[in-house]
Amino acid sequence: MSSLVKNIIRFILFIFFQHFVLDKISLHQMITPYVYFLFIIWLPFKMPRTWLMFIAFLLGFTLDSFRHQPGFHAAACVLIAYIKPFLVNMLIPQEGADTNYQEPSIKSMGGPLPYFIFIAVLCLLHNAWLFFLEAWQFGNIWYFLIKTILSTAISILLIFITELVFNRKQKFRTNTI
């Protein structure tokens, strides 16, 4: 399956899963489980950054349309799309590993630890920016801090469960030719 078709299907599935499954769960007022932005994390290494940001904006905007509050998720998604390439450059262990594999995963990032840091930083940034914008209207600092920390923990847990359930087969592509 081509990368484009795969990503379009992923886009739709992530939005539906987020809106029809996770948004229906109310665990606690301080915990909002988010997993849809894993779509942005899974986008290929090679994608130009401008494209990455436009796609992220589209993803966030789609979820916003379902929730009838435009802007919030779009802002958070654009932020992590902008930060993602920096993190990849910092965390990839050896030179050129990002050309050997197509997408970020435990294998292509060189072990569980770099991948965990990668996921954790992006989760934290997404949730922090999102809840900051929400708290800006509410105006409560504790609400913001506690909600960010708890939701990030749940997001990381959900992402790792997703990784375990959906085993993405990554082809090793040599760059020697």
């Binding site: 950054r49 904006f57 966030g60 509050q69 802007g71 779009a74 802002a75 932020l79 902008y82 914008l133």
Partner: peptide
């Protein structure tokens, strides 16, 4: 260019909010 795109998209989101 990348940073400017980032800023434009962020401002657009904030405008929507």
């Amino acid at each position: 260019f990348n940073f400017l795109t980032f800023l434009v998209l962020q401002v657009l989101s904030l405008y929507l909010i």
